[in-house]
Design a protein around this nucleic acid. Structure first.
Length: 954
RNA sequence: GCGGGAGUCGCCCAGCCUGGUCAAAGGCGUAGGGUUUAGGACCCUAUCUCUCAGGAGUUCGUGGGUUCGAAUCCCACCUCCCGCACCA
């Protein structure tokens, strides 16, 4: 049994002592690899470990390739979650305390300090950092920071100011979930049951004129304004007369309350009964008179408590109208639905059709919900507005809706009426949350086409791994619009020009990688945060202004400024940014958008690597399921390397990785046996190479080639599999061959093979690879050795073909034995020696190497050449050979064509006899077709073809 | 609705990017054998169908297409999973 922790601690100390991962600029080419930093409100679990592990493998690989690799890390303190946690801890809420004690195993005296939000972040910061160190991540810790240290805040102030100066920030209003009691915005962490308040801002308020009053209704479908036949009011409800700014609205009391949060002056000044309104007329946007009718389905809590009626397209409206008609309601009898949308699968009156189809009985029928949902979806996706919609005639509903919306907005008859989609949402204080429209909010104007185009430009030239996620990025860029970049609470940096606001957490984490390049100077005291002025950053990061200005405002010596500037210029741009796929829609896209908004093109990011999440035994990890394994626990129990490999080997980049114990133990035993093997091997000279030696060394070359390619493309699962598992089958064939010959001189060859394997394993499993490397007798570090180079020269084409011949011949013999079920007494092989056949074979190779395999064409070619014209006499041979070659890969065909003919008879007699005897227990004799002493009682010899010996078994 | 991903030989899952070496790796299960006092663990062999000479047939969600050739490329359809914001 390996003591993983002991080995790992040992090698971590060696790395640490030699400061291998502390990276400063030098004459070598650089790679700047970064991962999205963690938010420290819980310990990291195996899932978090994935992104960091992938990035670490990447970093370690490039280090071995000879690059000067910078792999830094920071901690994202910005935001509100720890605030909510602290509040809950202060309230002694059992749920969170239990979680801290039982799931996260936080010591009691630490929990006591958690009433202070920063203490929570500090605790988990250290916890996460320790885990990263224990995982063996090759991070330059000298550059570490949190996002609330003064230096970083200076940087963020500079960033946000620069964005504002560049015209990227605008001001406007937007809706948030809001606790009326606390007077604060609420997010997931502030609500009971941790529900995210979801705001539907596709809901609109449309105003009708009603005498001196406004008669407001809400709708999700503003385009249906053209099909309104009447309005609905609940006759049993007492409505309020409400002074809203300079107008008086009639609406429900609930509505009055809602709009009071929409930045309006709201005052209830009177009452009016629903039935008082019934039968009266209101005026729509273009002056048409619309009668007001009674309906029971109208709920005062919904919207404004008033409804507009579009009976042609809204099943509820249709049914309510029918109900009234059946009561011979005088006004209702005069009303006919006005169809305004034509939809393929429906006739003129879709609402009527669907109500009749579902057999709706009256306006309180539950089936109406389904009918409404179906019809809305169908009309949205397939419907077109008709001529009743005047200038919007022929627009598809999905586009027309927005046009109608802005048309009405301009007329002043429509405004936004955002609602809480998942209401009721309760704040932790117990109050029911509402939607509040915040005015004067600051936005990053991601909707700006010119900005989007810069981002598209950047994406086009960037390497995105895996490549198929590129379309998703394009989608996100298309779809992004203004995004709030400031909040009123939480940790972070205040807006320099508006101290009421704090820079929002997703906006202060977009170009901070630049800060890594200079943070070590702040950390070691060379400069203090006060020195980091706007002019200083302008000069260092944007090459704006000049050294004199930077020096005078920052009060720093010019040579210090120049050193820092050089360091930034050396490491920037970011060569690779790693992150989980959940950040595609926000962080990674913002990362690009902000880079293109701040930096010139040569400093734009070069690559993004996106990975999927981690499942636990096939299930999603979650606290409630109790299947979260803290990373540090896992390291302690199983070792860092086995966990790294289990994460890497279970899925390709974008797929969800499944973590399970079997794979961990499987990997442990694999590593253990490799370690044992390494301990047995010594660096002895290579023996004189035999066929199988040349073959396995060729295979090693292709292993190096494929693993290198895999790692370059971050297909780490594939690469790791090739190193650890796929190559095993080649090795076992090699051992079979060697054993059949009773050889004991292969130590040097195995040493060479395993040295390459261990070196390639090093980025994946760095600790155990060092141990193996040492056991192989090296006194250098595996992590500092050169990545094995693929070399074409070491690929022996002949040995690959001959080994294939050997295997296929053995397969053929086994196949015959299986089918015939005879017990062999004697096996005889006949190889072709016919020079005509060989000539034809080579000629066919040359014809077929381009992909040609049409019998007619091949034959024509053969006959046109006098050397191979004899093919006419052996069409059977030609046909079978086409089949043989047809199933060979292009690569092998080329190899065969390029290499000289080798002597099949000699090879098979010397190589097949030993291994064949072992396999089948009888002697194998090999004849050439033309041998004078040939033993061929059944006339099999003539069937022999190149690389396809004829076989006789007795 | 919009967007993304997936559907493979009893099950899980690779292969698809870069078409031919694919009846298709690996694991599980199943069957036979070995080892073991027994159990377990381990090792070997077999595992789509047919076939007493290395062969043939039918398979990779469904239906088309491109190609000499398709699990792999293109189109359509069906089914399942995930994300849709001011939150890290």
């Amino acid at each position: 049994m390996i003591n993983w922790n002991e080995i790992e601690t040992k090698w971590r100390k060696v790395w640490n002592d030699s400061k291998d991962f502390e990276t400063n600029p030098n004459e070598k080419q650089k790679k700047f690899i970064t991962v999205a930093y963690p938010y420290p409100n819980s310990p990291q679990h195996i899932g978090h470990g994935r992104t960091y592990t992938l990035a670490d493998v990447h970093a370690r690989y490039y280090r071995m390739k000879g690059y000067n690799v910078l792999f830094p890390m920071g901690f994202h303190y910005t935001g509100t979650p720890v605030l909510g946690m602290a509040k809950r801890i202060q309230n002694q809420e059992k749920e969170i305390l239990d979680g801290l004690r039982n799931v996260y195993h936080v010591p009691e005296d630490a929990i006591k300090t958690f009433v202070e939000p920063i203490k929570i972040a500090d605790y988990f910061h250290e916890e996460i950092k320790s885990g990263m160190i224990e995982m063996g991540y090759s991070i330059d810790w000298r550059r570490e920071f949190t996002t609330i240290v003064p230096g970083y805040q200076k940087f963020i102030e500079w960033q946000i100011t620069t964005l504002k100066e560049n015209g990227r920030i605008i001001q406007g209003s937007h809706p948030v979930g809001w606790c009326p009691d606390d007077g604060n915005p609420v997010s997931q962490h502030d609500t009971m049951g941790d529900v995210e308040p979801k705001i539907d801002d596709k809901n609109f308020l449309v105003k009708f004129n009603f005498g001196e009053f406004i008669f407001p209704v809400t709708t999700l479908r503003p385009e249906t304004i053209f099909g309104v036949t009447n309005l609905w009011v609940n006759p049993n409800v007492t409505y309020k007369k409400v002074q809203v700014d300079d107008k008086v609205w009639i609406c429900s009391e609930a509505c009055a309350k809602k709009i009071s949060f929409f930045e309006k002056q709201v005052e209830i000044i009177g009452e009016i009964n629903g039935n008082e309104i019934v039968g009266k007329l209101a005026i729509n946007h273009d002056g048409r008179e619309i009668p007001i009718l009674p309906a029971d389905f109208v709920e005062p809590e919904m919207g404004t408590g008033l409804v507009m009626s579009v009976p042609a397209h809204a099943p509820k409206d249709y049914q309510a109208l029918m109900d009234l008609k059946s009561q011979n309601h005088e006004l209702a009898l005069k009303i006919e639905p006005i169809p305004i949308i034509s939809t393929p699968d429906y006739g003129e009156f879709p609402a009527k059709e669907i109500c009749e189809k579902l057999g709706v009985s009256n306006q309180t029928d539950d089936k109406l919900e389904e009918a409404t949902k179906d019809l809305y979806a169908k009309e949205f996706s397939d419907g077109k507005l008709n001529e009743k919609c005047s200038q919007f005639n022929n627009e598809k509903v999905q586009f027309g809706r927005d046009k109608v919306r802005s048309y009405l907005e301009e007329k002043g008859t429509l405004e936004k009426f955002p609602i809480l989609e998942n209401a009721p949402v309760k704040c932790r204080c117990g109050a029911e949350c509402v939607v509040k429209i915040l005015n004067n909010q600051w936005f990053l104007n991601y909707g700006d086409e010119e900005w989007k185009n810069l981002a598209r430009n950047c994406f086009d030239e960037m390497n995105i791994l895996p490549n198929n996620i590129k379309t998703e990025f394009n989608e996100v860029i298309d779809w992004l619009h203004e995004r709030a970049c400031a909040r009123q609470q939480g940790l972070g940096t205040t807006l320099p020009w508006d101290k009421d606001w704090i820079v929002e957490s997703l906006s202060d984490s977009v170009i901070y990688m630049a800060y890594y390049t200079i943070s070590r100077f702040v950390n070691d005291g060379t400069v203090s945060p006060d020195n980091l002025t706007k002019e200083f950053f302008d000069y260092i990061l944007l090459d704006k202004g000049d050294i004199k200005l930077a020096a005078s405002t920052s009060k720093l010596a010019e040579d210090i400024i120049n050193t820092m500037k050089k360091e930034f210029n050396y490491f920037y741009p970011v060569d690779s940014r790693h992150s989980g796929r959940d950040l595609v829609q926000n962080h990674l896209s913002f990362f690009v958008l902000n880079h293109v908004a701040v930096f010139e093109k040569k400093l734009w990011p070069q690559e993004i690597v996106v990975n999927g999440s981690v499942m636990m035994d096939g299930a999603k990890m979650s606290k409630s399921m109790g299947n979260i394994i803290p990373l540090r626990t896992a390291i302690r129990d199983h070792g860092a390397d086995p966990i790294r490999l289990a994460i890497i080997s279970s899925a390709e980049l974008l797929q969800d990785a499944d973590f399970n114990m079997e794979s961990v133990t499987g990997i442990q035993s694999k590593l253990e046996s490799l370690l044992e093997e390494c301990s047995r091997l010594e660096n002895t000279p290579l023996p004189e190479l035999q066929a199988e030696d040349r073959w396995i060394l060729s295979k090693l070359q292709s292993l190096i080639g494929t693993v290198t390619e895999s790692v370059e493309k971050m297909r780490l699962r594939e690469g790791l599999h090739d190193i650890l598992f796929s190559f095993e089958s080649d090795l076992s064939w090699y051992h079979k061959r060697v054993q059949a010959k009773d050889r004991d001189d292969i130590n040097g060859i195995l040493y060479k093979i395993n040295s390459a394997r261990v070196a390639m394993l090093s980025p994946f499993a760095p600790h155990i690879a060092e141990e193996m490397w040492q056991k192989l007798g090296n006194n250098t570090l595996a992590s500092k050795t050169q990545w094995p180079e693929f070399s074409d020269d070491n690929v022996d084409a002949t040995s690959i073909q001959s080994e294939n011949l050997l295997k296929s011949t053995i397969d053929d013999i086994a196949n015959i034995l299986k089918v015939t079920k005879i017990t062999p007494k004697k096996i005889v092989l006949y190889v072709t020696s016919d020079s005509t056949k060989k000539k034809i074979y080579r000629k066919m190779l040359s014809i077929m190497v381009g992909g040609q395999n049409n019998m007619g064409i091949v034959m024509k070619e053969l006959l046109s050449n006098p050397d191979t014209a004899d093919a006419k006499k052996m069409p059977d041979f030609v046909q079978k050979t086409i089949k043989d070659l047809h199933s060979e890969s292009e690569e092998i065909k080329k190899m065969k064509l390029e290499s000289d003919n080798f002597d099949e008879k000699e090879f098979l007699s010397s190589e097949l006899c030993s291994i064949g005897k072992k396999e089948f227990g009888v002697d194998i004799t090999v004849f050439a077709e033309s041998d004078s002493d040939i033993y061929d009682p059944k006339g099999k010899a003539r069937h022999a073809r190149p690389f396809k010996p004829a076989i006789l078994i007795e």
